[in-house]
Simulated assay, not measured.
Amino acid sequence: MLGLGALADDHRREPVLNRLQISDRALKWSFLLPSVLILMFLSLYPFLQGIWMSLHQWPLGGGERAFVGTANYAALLGGERFHNALWNTVVFTGVSVTVELILGTALALYLFSLSKRWRPIFRTIFIVPMVVTPIATGLMWRLMLNGRIGVVNYLLYLAGLPIPEWTSSPFMAMFTVIVIDVWQWTPLVIMIVFAGLLSIPESLYEAARVDGAPRWAIFRHITLPGIRYMLAIAAVFRLMRSFRSFDIIWLVTQGGPGTSTEILNVYLYRVAFVFLRGGEAAALGLILLVVTIVTTMGILRAVGVQ
């Protein structure tokens, strides 16, 4: 009897999951399935709701909703303001991301060339702009470029240089928001490329130096292939974030002067919350999603990432 009681106690102390005949794969999915279902609902429901809204006349201020098919898409694609916003998005995203990739790669190479003593110091300095929230960044630059109390104009005045119309002319307004975006998000490229540089074996550089290869040849045949995928990742991250830029542009220029800095995301905000046209806003959001996916897939395919 004592032996049977001891066996029963051991059986009771054994975890329930160990007594059930469940495979490891089924056990993993049983834990993951609730989270997967919740994430699918939170992702799919708004997406399907957006598709449904885009096919309807959906006034956000109240009113009758009616099925209009693809009329919202036709109205957007045929509108001059959409074409202007699309062109502004191409200019803003193309210039800012290109400059960030070039400047970020150069600064990552400089950071990689430093000794281990100085790397943490410069890495901290480089990363500071990225940790500032976009709202704080927009307000800070708005004050710095202010015509009366801005420190940038004051320094230019002391240097005897002409003071540009930072947000008053179309060209300078676009230039200003691009500079702010480059200032804030170049550190992301630096950190990603720097991680790629650390993954390149040092033996490759030593062999190239022994063979007497010049620096440009080393960069072209060793460094650049070694960081190619990291550059693609940085480009994808920045493109996805740049397409969704809103806060900095809205705080600094509000899409102006006129519509010279109104990118698609700013135009989407105006269609939804100023014009209160929910159907067109949903259609514009889906168009922006398609543009983002096509662009990122093109970049990944260009560098050989399948």
Rank of each mutant, 00 (worst) to 15 (best):
Arg241Pro: 09
Val151Tyr: 10
Ile227Phe: 04
Val16Arg: 15
Leu264Thr: 02
Leu204Ser: 05
Ala232Thr: 15
Pro187Lys: 02
Ser203Thr: 14
Ala281Phe: 06
Thr89Gln: 01
Asp211Met: 00
Gly196Tyr: 05
Met53Arg: 12
Leu158Asn: 10
Arg301Pro: 03
Ser96Met: 05
Trp141Pro: 01
Val152Trp: 03
Ala213Asn: 05
Thr292Arg: 00
Leu224Trp: 11
Val189Phe: 01
Asp181Val: 00
Leu48Asn: 04
Gln306Asn: 14
Leu231Ala: 12
Val16Phe: 13
Ala207Leu: 02
Val128Asp: 02
Phe122Asp: 13
Met140Gln: 14
Asp9Val: 13
Leu188Asn: 08
Phe31Asp: 07
Thr261Gly: 00
Met240Asp: 04
Met240Gln: 11
Arg220Cys: 11
Trp87Ile: 07
Trp183Thr: 01
Trp250Ile: 04
Ser23Phe: 05
Val294Gln: 05
Pro164Gln: 07
Gly258Lys: 02
Glu80His: 13
Arg19Asp: 04
Asn153Met: 05
Ile192Cys: 08
Pro170Cys: 14
Phe112Asp: 15
Val68Ala: 08
Arg148Val: 01
Gln254Cys: 07
Pro162Phe: 05
Gly212Val: 11
Ala234Leu: 03
Glu64Trp: 12
Ile190Cys: 10
Leu55Gly: 11
Leu101Gln: 04
Phe194Asp: 14
Asn88Arg: 00
Asp24Gln: 15
Val290Asp: 01
Pro257Ser: 00
Gly79Asn: 15
Met174Ala: 09
Leu161Val: 13
Arg119His: 03
Glu165Pro: 01
Gly50Lys: 09
Leu103Met: 14
Arg123Trp: 05
Gly62Thr: 05
Thr89Asp: 00
Phe275Met: 13
Val294Thr: 04
Glu280Ile: 03
Glu165Ala: 15
Trp185His: 14
Val291Tyr: 04
Met174Glu: 00
Phe237Val: 06
Tyr154Asn: 12
Trp185Pro: 03
Asp181Phe: 03
Ala108Phe: 01
Ile51Gln: 12
Leu143Gly: 06
Ile135Arg: 02
Pro34Thr: 05
Arg301Cys: 08
Gly279Val: 10
Ala66Pro: 11
Ile22Asp: 07
Ser203Ala: 14
Leu60Asp: 09
Ile102Gln: 01
Phe126Asp: 06
Met230Gln: 13
Pro15Trp: 05
Ile233Leu: 15
Asn88Ala: 00
